[in-house]
Nucleic acid binder design. Sequence first.
DNA 1: CCGCTTTCTGTAAACGTTTCCCGGAACTGG
DNA 2: CCAGTTCCGGGAAACGTTTACAGAAAGCGG
Lengths: 344, 344
Amino acid sequence: MHGGKRMGAGQPTIFSIAERAGVSIASVSRVLNGVGARRDTVERVERAAAELGYVPNAVARSLKGGRTRQLTFAMPDIGNPVYVAMVRAIQAVTKAAGYRLLLHSTDAVVEDELAVLRSLGDRTSDGLIICPIRITDAHVEALRTAAGPVVVIGSLPDGVPVDSVRADSVAGAALAVRHLHETGRRRIAFVNGPSDTVPGGNRDAGYRAALDDCGLVYDPDLVVHTDFGIESGAEATDRLLAARPDAVFCANDQLALGAARALHARGLRIPEDVAVAGMDDSVLAQAGWPPLTSVDLGSTERGRRAADLLLRRLDTPEAATPSSTTAPPRLVVRASTGPAATDS
Amino acid sequence: MHGGKRMGAGQPTIFSIAERAGVSIASVSRVLNGVGARRDTVERVERAAAELGYVPNAVARSLKGGRTRQLTFAMPDIGNPVYVAMVRAIQAVTKAAGYRLLLHSTDAVVEDELAVLRSLGDRTSDGLIICPIRITDAHVEALRTAAGPVVVIGSLPDGVPVDSVRADSVAGAALAVRHLHETGRRRIAFVNGPSDTVPGGNRDAGYRAALDDCGLVYDPDLVVHTDFGIESGAEATDRLLAARPDAVFCANDQLALGAARALHARGLRIPEDVAVAGMDDSVLAQAGWPPLTSVDLGSTERGRRAADLLLRRLDTPEAATPSSTTAPPRLVVRASTGPAATDS
DNA sequence: CCGCTTTCTGTAAACGTTTCCCGGAACTGG
DNA sequence: CCAGTTCCGGGAAACGTTTACAGAAAGCGG
């Protein structure tokens, strides 16, 4: 005649098990969590649990324990392979540590990003990795007052007390431009992402610096800002052709794929007539023809590190001072920047 | 001198608010949920909540309410644009209905899919949309005993009492093959996905049926099974070239992109020497050159419908008998299946 | 000024766990 | 057979909400 509590039909709970096994709920909980118990008790409880098809209620468990064993990753665009690479890297780490990963696609909308940051307070997940494309004052404020551990993938102003993992897209862009210069290109066009984003700004800086290095002058007619995406890359490149570039450097692989399509459509050969280079070295770099030269900004590496940092932060909440590491860029040369045609 | 309860420093709770506002927790809850209260009370509570930066604990709320306002979508591969399209479609519907969407990438691993199905029992989300690539007996059993509403995107054996939304890939594959035949191709190779999957089997059936229709004979040398992915498509196509096909039909756009790359690498022209067609009509169809003819299997539509069904099921758990709808395929013709070279 | 109705508010229980703290059972050794 | 240990198991509290219930306050007409 054990326990009162409700006895409804719904999902089995530890009460149903306790009743069926003829023990208390405390014993059920202990057995299910592998805490010592008498042989006999263990067996009865386990049998009852199996027969009822018991699954522990994660919500109740979280409420009691104060942790959900869930982490969140918020990225700008789930359709961009670069973030998919990060997801995989993060997933691998968090899964091994026994955490479930929740994915969030913010479409780079500031309001959405802030909402994610604030939602840390609702205790739905134990920590957050976020990859914002712009950093506003509101972001800084939200990061400062976040209700749980956060790791940022991207560049943060100094003084924000949050772990971050950065890409060096200034150096990365320069790498690509110098490579194009070395293969003999002199009119290097640049299809960049939105200019008011952190990566957009950095890539622009890298582009300009490298031009300088190479003794080339910055020509506004060779530069276009657009949003990321294959179509945008194609349109932008089409417009740029008026300025007769001998190379098109794109701020990511999607843009570069679009650029290649536009060039093909005009009957121009890659790389003989125009060279093309992208960034991110995502799966897309090897999707089209010719395979694209691209700058690997270490997305996988950044994802992995971010996840490691987050886990560390979960272990020792206020211990270490915020760390900030930068993944080095790496140029991957493929056919799209091969030698130019010797004639002309 | 209100309430006892704990008073720690942690996150603010309705207790902190109650104390600060000098009212009971019941009043706090009521005000926060917009239930009637006296002018004065409302103001005091709202001010206290704002000052403390209160965020309701979603876990506690879920425990009490028995629902999480979260739904799960489990897909085989987060890197495949077709599932990204589904995510977007599902997201749009669920977000509008006030649900958060959790994403899960199963890598088409049966164990993982079953785990997701079983995890419905842990009450972490209120419902599940799952897209399995194979259906084993274990799947059927798990679906039958699922602890919450499930909608399957994909084909299910008869008699499984679960809502489903199907693609007609038999008809879809036939559409593509007949189109290739109409453009004069007679040696139509087929790069298919794994043969032990439902889509794999169906596409094979469609391919064979269409060959029959067109009076062509099935030639095993023209058919390859591989896994999905650009690299696999390239390798498979390379092998197929020994059989001198004049068209390559691929079971999805990733394979088709790989096929195109392999053909380019051999110096073959598309479509003059070999035509290429894909399936899914994902963003990748327009990523390379030439743009790919592809069969739209209605991924967006299927995602939308699946979400609608799930929401309906959440409203009226046991009402309607399980529904099963099929999205019609649609052939999208692009340059990759243009006319063959007239010589040769 | 009294009793009635109508608001409003506070107490307490419940959601399903985990875990602290005892009391009792089972051993051990003398 | 008894005292001392050790081990197990049960009762109850707690996690942060929502909500049924009942009591207090306030408004009202007579």
